[in-house]
Amino acid sequence: MTLQTVNEEQYRTNINSPGVSVVEFGAVWCPPCKHLQPILENLADEYGASVSFAKIDVDECPEIAEEQAIMSMPTVIVYRDGQPVDKLVGLRPKAAYKTVIDRTLQG
C-alpha cells in the first residue's frame, strides 16, 4: 500500500472519521521523511482497515501545518475520533510508531 498524500479537505475528512488515523507531516525534499515512508507503508499494510494512514505535504498545506504546530519534519500525529492523541517528532524506529498506534487502538 502506498501512503496517499491528501489535501486539506481530505485531511479533515480523514481525521474526523471514527477510529484511529495516522498522519505524517513532511515534504518531498525532506530526507528523513523519505526514510519514514516505507515504515509507514509497512504499518499501513500490517494494520489494514483498522487504522487510516495519510500524509500531508506542509509546503502544499501550510495552514494545517500551522494549525497542528508542526515545527520539525517528519512529524506523525495519531488521532482517535478526530482528536490528536500523540505526536512523534523526527524519524523514529518502526517500533515507536507501532507502540503509539497499539496504545491508541486499545484506549
Results as ranks from 00 to 15, higher is better:
Gly26Thr: 09
Arg12Ala: 03
Thr2Asn: 13
Glu60Arg: 09
Pro18Val: 06
Tyr79Ala: 07
Glu67Trp: 10
Ile77Lys: 10
Asn14Lys: 14
Ile101Asp: 02
Val76His: 07
Lys98Asn: 05
Val22Asn: 05
Glu24Thr: 09
Asp81Leu: 04
Arg103Gly: 14
Glu41Gly: 05
Leu43Asn: 10
Ser72His: 12
Arg92Leu: 12
Gln4Ala: 15
Asp86Ala: 15
Thr99Leu: 11
Tyr47Lys: 00
Cys61Trp: 05
Ser17Asp: 09
Thr2Phe: 12
Met73Ala: 08
Asn7His: 06
Leu40Asp: 07
Ser17Thr: 13
Thr75Trp: 08
Leu91Ser: 00
Ile15Asn: 04
Asp59Val: 07
Tyr79Gly: 09
Cys33Val: 12
Ile56Val: 14
Thr99Met: 13
Asn7Glu: 04
Thr104Val: 00
Gly107Ser: 02
Asp81His: 09
Pro31Asn: 10
Ser72Leu: 15
Phe25Asn: 11
Ala96Phe: 03
Asn7Cys: 06
Ser21Asp: 05
Asp57Trp: 05
Trp29Tyr: 08
Ser21Cys: 04
Gly90Cys: 09
Asn16Trp: 11
Glu67Val: 01
Asp102His: 00
Val51Glu: 05
Thr104Trp: 01
Ile64Tyr: 00
Arg12Val: 04
Phe25Lys: 13
Ala44Ser: 13
Gly82Asp: 04
Glu46Lys: 14
Arg92Lys: 15
Asp57Asn: 12
Pro38Glu: 08
Gln106His: 03
Thr2Pro: 14
Ile101Met: 00
Arg92Asp: 02
Gly82Tyr: 02
Tyr79Ile: 08
Gly48Pro: 10
Leu91Ile: 03
Phe53Gly: 03
Arg103Ile: 00
Thr2Gly: 04
Arg103Met: 13
Pro31Gln: 05
Ile77Val: 14
Ser52Val: 15
Tyr11Met: 00
Trp29Cys: 12
Asp86Gln: 15
Pro74Val: 01
Val89Gly: 07
Lys98Tyr: 01
Val28Ser: 15
Asp59Ile: 10
Arg12Cys: 04
Ile56Arg: 05
Glu60Asn: 10
Asn14Trp: 13
Val89Tyr: 03
Asp45Ser: 13
Leu43Lys: 07
Asp59Leu: 07
Tyr47Glu: 06
Lys98Met: 01
Val85Asp: 00
Leu36Asp: 03
Asp57Lys: 11
Leu88Gln: 13
Lys94Gln: 13
Glu60Ser: 11
Ile15Val: 12
Glu67Ser: 10
Ala95Arg: 07
Val28Cys: 11
Val22His: 03
Gln83Leu: 08
Phe53Ala: 03
Lys87Leu: 07
Cys30Glu: 09
Lys34Gln: 12
Leu3Tyr: 11
